[in-house]
Write a protein that binds this DNA or RNA. Structure first.
Lengths: 195, 195
DNA sequence: TTGACAACAGAACGATCGTTCTTTATATTA
DNA sequence: TAATATAAAGAACGATCGTTCTGTTGTCAA
């Protein structure tokens, strides 16, 4: 997309999307773009697709790509040597949620209690993003159910048996008798600093 | 929406939406829900609308609401005899972005490089949620600009002058000559575990 | 001045969409 | 056992959708 007009059309589409979280029909886009022909709208969207601002679902529906939400460089007041950063603005989605949550229906947030995983950088009060499932791999940090409590530990193996290893020398390794009940696997961590 | 089935349909819709950012046609939703009749799909969506999980654009297209994206937040201590369905029971619903970001226009996400703050539980590769401003309080973790580089350190004072204290004994305290340029204050931290 | 191309407009069409209405199967309650 | 709700299935239909193809208009270079 090398074109001024297309940039303008993209802006209009972005504005509409910010309001409605949805790319409407060609007929509606005619109004939005101030154009009278659907075929030309299609040509525009095809160009935006080639420029990777939008794409299609297998059903043919238009959806935005990551680029669709990216801000132009001019807007970020940054000096030289700025590391890769993103501005969290309204128009975009819930980008952190999107980053941490792959399967919403299986994902739960659990507040961490205690400091048994402190050496893994997991503090008291942190919020763990947990994907619910019953199996995990050695080395995963898992939420297990021990004595009717949730506990967050690293899953390990010792003499053929599963054990739960804390990341704090002050806590003991947990060696469950019988089966180990796994609630889910840690896929993300969130911490809020008081202000 | 007081209904188990509808909760299941909502989950499937949320998972589809997480993949495609789009609510598809009734015909497609038949497949997703495992249902054969469009009219029943409409009935389901209408109930989800009454429960404020989705709504309609003026054109009649279905779009998600804020509630659609909220995740359950559970406390770590849970009662006895929990089945795997657990968390739906009690507790609030949260959107991670809203939890961490108060002022979107002033908030930036920066990926952390290095381990100079490891004792504060901030690891290499973590994403820092930074609120841009030029002033901070003693004890805040700040993003400062030192020698044209961004650095994340704790702001402290020594003999009346500001210093930047790492949370790792292997790194030196930074004592800026002249003014200290502060880019922003750390308000949140996000970590993603690879799967 | 002509020819080529870009930027649209407009019509035509079959496919698909959402809606409504009717029917059926199962579960629950009286 | 009968009545009623719930959870769907299915057909029928007009509206709308995306697509394709053909025109039209303006611009600019040769």
């Amino acid at each position: 997309m090398n074109n001024d007009k297309d940039t303008e059309y993209l802006s209009k589409l972005q504005d509409y999307y910010a309001d409605w979280k949805n790319i409407p029909s060609y007929a509606r886009l005619c109004e939005i773009f101030g154009i009278a022909s659907k075929s030309w709208v299609k040509a525009i969207l095809t160009r935006l697709e080639e420029a990777s601002f939008i794409e299609r679902t297998p059903d043919g529906a238009w959806i935005p790509t990551r680029q669709f939400f990216a801000r132009p460089l001019a807007e970020s007041t940054v000096q030289a040597g700025m590391p890769a950063s993103v501005t969290a603005t309204q128009g975009d989605f819930f980008i952190i949620d999107e980053m941490l949550i792959d399967t919403p229906s299986k994902t739960t947030l659990i507040t961490v209690k205690g400091d048994s995983m402190i050496d893994a950088g997991i503090h008291d009060g942190d919020v763990a993003v947990v994907e619910k499932r019953m199996t995990a791999n050695i080395g995963d940090i898992v939420v297990a159910i021990v004595d009717d409590n949730f506990t967050l530990k690293t899953l390990d193996r010792e003499n053929g048996a599963f054990i739960l290893r804390p990341a704090n020398p002050a806590y003991p390794v947990i060696r469950p008798q019988g089966t180990l009940e796994i609630f889910g696997v840690l896929t993300g961590l969130v911490r809020k600093y008081r202000r």
